[in-house]
Nucleic acid binder design. Sequence first.
RNA 1: GGGCCGGUAGCUCAGAGGUAGAGCAAAUGACUCUUAAUCAUUAGGUCGAGGGUUCGAAUCCCUCCCGGCUCACCA
Length: 493
Amino acid sequence: MEPEINAIIQSRLKKLEILNEKGIDPYPTDFKPTHNTMDCLNLLDETEKKDLEKSNDIHSAGRITAIRKMGKAVFIDILDEAGKIQLLARNNTIDDATKELIELLDIGDWVGVIGPVFRTRRNEPTVQVNSLKMLAKSIKPLPEKWHGLKNVETRYRQRYLDLIANRDVLNIVKQRDSIVFELRKFMKELGFVEVDTPILVPIPAGGMAHPFKTYHNALDRELYLRIATELYLKRMIVGGIEKVFEIGRLFRNEGIDSNHNPEFTTMESYEAYADYNDVMEMVENLFAHIVFNLKGTYEIPYGENKLNFKPPWKRINLRQSLIEKSGIDYEECSDLEVLKDKMSNIGIDVRNQLSWAGLMDKLISEKLEPDLIQPTFLIDYPLEMSPLAKRSKDNPNIVERFEGFIAGMEVCNAFTELNDPVDQRTRFENQEKLREEFPEEERDRLDEDFLVALEHGMPPTGGVGIGIDRMVMLILNQPSIREVITFPQLRSL
RNA sequence: GGGCCGGUAGCUCAGAGGUAGAGCAAAUGACUCUUAAUCAUUAGGUCGAGGGUUCGAAUCCCUCCCGGCUCACCA
């Protein structure tokens, strides 16, 4: 489908033609800025401290966001990554070629300027145009300068426009980078080794999720996009890398909403000789480190709430908490129907839940999660919900597992890793059985290759998976995962 | 998947049966310190798509597409 060529585009294409006729390359490569817009402001400060009116000539560049023609003077605003500065071209400081070029400028064009920095009578820091160079002609108009770009669909589909028109969006991209940087630094300072494990996997194991399926021609086999990094990282532990982590993309073929994108980023780490208590400390320190380094405080706003990340976080026993909040003790409800009835009796809609683990999950989401606003660890989960976690020493029906919740959102999942290969095999086999029994619900999958690894001996290990996108949402006070994933998944038009 | 809300000029929005509107952006002109510049003039539309009702539909009805919120599902 050819986009309609309207008058604005016509006019710009005409200007492009004129540039070519004049022998001016509209897309040259030979301009190197010496000063970005921020450097220009700093240079002006220095210049004024020396009691000078103008600096030496500098080279600066950016995208034109406004043109104000005042007869024989023209003001041009340019925007670069660092910010914004105004250019002033006056007829008596520029040659005819530059005058002609200015006639061909449009909002959206990239230009380079050479000239001194000074301050106008209205006190505006300004680069005087001694010479101007077209760096890239734009032929489509930008969103309007004052109201900007608001249409959410356009913001997501054409994020580059969002980045130009809404400065906050660019800051989210940069702050997300800072968060990941601090995260990586924190892990490396603890001595963790960063690795990459396969994204294309023969068995989508290590979690409970519906996978994306794909196909490799040369191998003539189906492959899946990973739903977790867990099992490969544990193979690393088996191999003797004692502290290991991976920051990477996971793919889950499930619903999309403000907390879920089909591809999302996690940090998973595994540490030999650690248990889930050690991991808990690591996680709260990690969040605290990142929040403090970004915001200079442990207390930050999220929506209506003020979140305090200062360790230690609240630790809540799952079973006790469920008894308090719902009156249900799951240890007395090992029968699926009994649990279902009890949940139904307290007003929970259980029509769509099939398995015991599915019911428990619903019970936790309904009765516990919404109240977990301040960073909190829910501790000790039923065995049936956690096929990869080690049994508690005191109770074989409970595993050493915790999940971290903030603002009602799950942000991490961790356990003392199951390293008993016999028990692990049984748990996988049980998952496979449950899959047959409840084909509608997702289960973990038996990964024989991983079991063989475990059979060679994995040291006692503590592991965790942290959702980076949700972490960024919380720290940057964003209500939707689509605001922190630059290109969220949308239906194609 | 259900419910609610939305899609009108490049952008932001009005219009709710009777000639398709405004601001910004664009074009032309005036103006050598403006910064949402100002002033004058001009141009710009498959009103998300398709069907229906009507003398007449952006507007009412039906189907579909896209998005947002929410519930369900999912971790």
